[in-house]
């Protein structure tokens, strides 16, 4: 048998916008031992529908099971594995970084290179908003780390399929 390869998958799930639906989804993952790396959920243009973007990983058989189990939920309208399609991913992080005398300019320079926005300033810190894909956020964070990260909050991944370009 071939070695089973684990891959990261980004999956979009359209569900009825009703109480308890999110816990059906997360309960499915915990109950069946699937992992969730991140999860975002919000209403769509149609207030009766919410869209969940979740990131998980597993071998092909596990991902297939995850998708089938998601589809099996009565409140699930549609499931799409975006990893199989051309798509764009974004995450966001807000980071409070120590920025005193000598490092103040350096932090701003990093922010500038990666097109971060400064969303809050204090005499000894900057708070930056970083958006980008998973890798970019990791890259910025590793650069900022040496300056001292005082606080951090990160979103899960959002993803959307690219439009067909005929």
């Amino acid at each position: 048998m071939e070695a089973k390869k684990n891959r990261r998958h980004t999956i979009s799930v359209w569900v009825d916008n009703q109480p308890g639906v999110l816990s059906r989804v997360t309960g499915l993952f915990s109950g069946r031992g699937f992992n969730i790396e991140s999860l975002c959920v919000a209403e769509t243009m149609d207030p009766a529908t919410s869209r969940i973007t979740l990131v998980t990983s597993g071998d092909e058989q596990i991902i297939e099971q995850i998708i089938k189990q998601l589809r099996k939920l009565i409140n699930t309208q549609k499931v799409v594995d975006l990893s199989e399609l051309d798509h764009v991913e974004r995450e966001m992080a807000m980071v409070r970084v120590k920025a005193e005398d000598k490092s103040r300019a350096e932090v701003l320079r990093i922010a500038d290179i990666f097109r971060c926005r400064v969303v809050d300033v204090s005499p000894t810190t900057y708070t930056l908003e970083i958006t980008g894909n998973h890798e970019k956020i990791q890259a910025v964070l590793s650069l900022l780390k040496s300056h001292g990260i005082l606080d951090i909050v990160r979103s899960g991944t959002l993803a959307i399929q690219r439009a067909k370009k005929e």
Binding site: Q65, K68, K72
Partner: peptide
Amino acid sequence: IDPSSISKNVV
């Protein structure tokens, strides 16, 4: 009738 039964334990 249940797609999730198929290839769950045995491919």
